[in-house]
């Protein structure tokens, strides 16, 4: 599903953010990308949906070399991804329905279908009663689950979660992890970036270790 061949990435200057990275994540896999802060986890994840372009190397998503994509093709690539951030990135002046529905709006769904689908996903998350609330009125855990709902509402092929449990207490973190596992069971490839060893121990899965911009462990499938 995701394959990187000798990828280099720098933010300008001589310091490389990623150095000769090669890895493969199979369809339906559940993978952790781990490493110390600043090791390059987020940079690596952002490459998958072309938030950055690599300086060198090849990135294949579902068999397509996305480094050759024209700018106009990028939105269509991103529709195969669901992305969750540690800081949620919810729109404060929009309701939960609108925040989650934005993914479907982009796909051209009509209002009625969006409402139905969003309600369905919120029900799975146990948040259907919050559909008309704005994010400020929700707890951190609820906000993270809304962000997850936004990422999963169109059943993406790949879900990328950057420190999804970073700001949450253990019970809420477990809730979030079970949502990720459920999505994985339904066929979504899940990639979670985290530096939380506790999470890795509690929910053990394949681990890709990033260290100073290089893959130090787990780049290829076990």
């Amino acid at each position: 599903m995701i394959r990187l061949n000798n990828v280099y990435m720098s933010y300008g200057g001589n310091v490389a953010a990623l150095h000769d990275v090669s890895l493969h994540i199979a369809k339906g896999d559940f993978v952790y990308v781990t490493g110390a802060s600043g090791a390059g986890k987020t940079t690596l994840m952002r490459l998958f949906y072309l938030a950055h372009a690599p300086s060198r190397g090849q990135i294949l998503i579902d068999g397509q070399n996305i480094t050759r994509f024209k700018p106009a093709q990028i939105p269509y690539l991103r529709r195969d991804f669901g992305v969750v951030f540690q800081d949620f990135k919810l729109l404060p002046n929009r309701t939960v329905l609108e925040n989650v529905g934005i993914t479907l709006e982009v796909l051209g769904w009509n209002k009625k279908d969006i409402a139905r689908r969003v309600n369905h996903v919120l029900k799975q998350m146990g948040l259907e009663h919050k559909v008309n609330s704005t994010p400020q009125r929700l707890s951190g855990g609820e906000q993270q689950r809304i962000a997850l709902a936004r990422a999963l509402v169109n059943e993406p092929k790949i879900l990328l979660a950057d420190e999804p449990t970073g700001n949450l207490d253990e019970a809420t973190a477990n809730q979030v992890m079970s949502v990720l596992k459920e999505a994985n069971i339904r066929g979504t490839t899940v990639v979670v970036a985290t530096h939380d060893r506790h999470l890795l121990d509690k929910h053990p899965r394949r681990v890709i270790m990033v260290d100073k911009g290089r893959i130090s462990e787990g780049g290829d499938e076990a």
Binding site: A72, R79, V83, I102
Partner: peptide, 16 residues
């Protein structure tokens, strides 16, 4: 900016 970023993230085209 956040709004623009999220629209781009979920696959909104430039003109959308």
């Amino acid at each position: 900016q956040d709004e623009l970023e999220i629209m781009a993230l979920v696959g909104g085209t430039k003109w959308f």
